[in-house]
């Protein structure tokens, strides 16, 4: 199952451990994480469920393209990284 990693800065603000979660898309994998760590959702997604403006999500090294619904596909062995964008720094 895909592995989800969060930037260390996020983990310093709220519970954001490395997780292995079922999911065929980024949204499915993230939702599975948020079910276990509900506070984390608003740190990654905005009020309408889009990836926050200054957060970037990578799947196997490539930034996802569907920032609104995170429908980008993931493979069982994918590595998902939730990072902070330099734009927000």
């Amino acid at each position: 199952m895909p592995t989800v990693h969060f930037t260390a800065n996020l983990a310093s603000q709220t519970s954001a451990p490395i997780c292995q979660m079922d999911g065929a898309t980024v949204r499915e994998a993230l939702n599975a994480v948020f079910t276990q760590h509900p506070t984390l959702r608003s740190y990654v997604l905005d009020d309408q469920g889009a990836v926050r403006q200054h957060v970037v999500v990578f799947v196997d090294g490539t930034a996802i393209t569907d920032r609104q619904k995170q429908a980008d596909a993931v493979k069982p062995n994918s590595e998902i990284f939730v990072m902070q964008a330099l734009s927000g720094g």
């Binding site: 996020l10 603000q13 964008a85």
Partner: peptide
């Protein structure tokens, strides 16, 4: 208000 992660 976090620069990257929104307002809490």
């Amino acid at each position: 208000e976090h620069g990257h992660f929104g307002t809490k």
